[in-house]
Design a protein around this nucleic acid. Structure first.
Ligand SMILES: [Mn+2]
Ligand SMILES: [Mn+2]
Ligand SMILES: [Zn+2]
Ligand SMILES: [Zn+2]
Lengths: 145, 145
DNA sequence: TGTTAAATAAGAATAATTCCTATTCGCATG
DNA sequence: CATGCGAATAGGAATTATTCTTATTTAACA
């Protein structure tokens, strides 16, 4: 995603294009591991020292409301953000805090047909996310959270 | 789960049997909706006013370490606890904060054989949890979080 | 270029959770 | 049953992720 793509993302949602928003969007694209607000701030601050943490939260909230990011559920006490808004699943590493995206159309079709056939009484399914927990072989995770 | 079952659970893990631990265990059994530390305290305090919130957290931590409870991942800023430690999935209601257990052996077999066949490169799967997001028809959730 | 509503910076406030420590208590031992 | 000890608890302080507040700045548009 290049600069004009990012400007397009913001404009398309009716958001003012500001350097702060572009920087946060760029961080979300650059950081591979579902970053926290804090790690986004740290990343952006290298080039843009004046960005305040409160502003990062404001921007992420707006992005969330507009569907530009999603939040990733963990059992730790902070939220992680995800620039990938198309439905996908996650690999959770047991041994570190790495969370990797997992796309699998075949799996999605399998699940869809399973629940279409079987259903859940009294419940309307809108979305299904798998948390695949385990560990990498020869794990060498990126440093950034 | 009755009182002697609960005493058995604690003893089996080498934990001292205290009234506080029994009360928290009882609350976990009684509260159907993956309660927070705070709602466990509120529930227990009705019969046991002296139980301190810090003690609830201590006890839940010990239970977690011993595998008596698990933590349920949400995108809100507090942790919810689960007395059901056997592998299962969750229905997340869109419209309220209800989280219901979902057991489905057929589904588990389906997933297991799928991943046995397909695998994930460089990753060892230990556990798979589905977050099934949607809404109940005619929803009338219990009051307790 | 000037106007204006929206966005930001900075710091205070909030709330879930953790930490600290004096006191209490379960339980093993005699 | 009494004693002693290490573990557990109560209560409050500390921490920390997140939210709130407000004065200042700025992007967008006429
Ligand atoms: Mn993701
Ligand atoms: Mn559960
Ligand atoms: Zn790892
Ligand atoms: Zn509901």
């Amino acid at each position: 995603m290049n600069m004009s793509d990012m400007i397009g993302v913001l404009s398309a949602k009716g958001l003012k294009v500001t350097p702060q928003r572009l920087a946060v969007l760029g961080a979300l694209v650059a950081l591979p591991n579902h970053p926290t607000a804090d790690s986004i701030k740290a990343y952006v601050n290298e080039q843009f020292p004046s960005l305040a943490l409160g502003t990062v939260y404001n921007i992420l909230d707006v992005f969330f409301e507009k569907g530009i990011v999603t939040k990733v559920k963990t059992d730790r006490d902070f939220v992680r953000y995800d620039i990938e808004v198309n439905g996908h699943h996650h690999l959770y590493c047991d041994e570190c805090d790495y969370i990797e995206n997992y796309f699998d159309e075949e799996l999605d079709n399998l699940l869809q047909s399973y629940f279409q056939r079987k259903g859940i009484p009294n419940f309307n399914i809108r979305d299904i996310n798998l948390q695949i927990v385990g560990s990498y072989i020869n794990h060498n995770p990126p440093k950034n959270l």
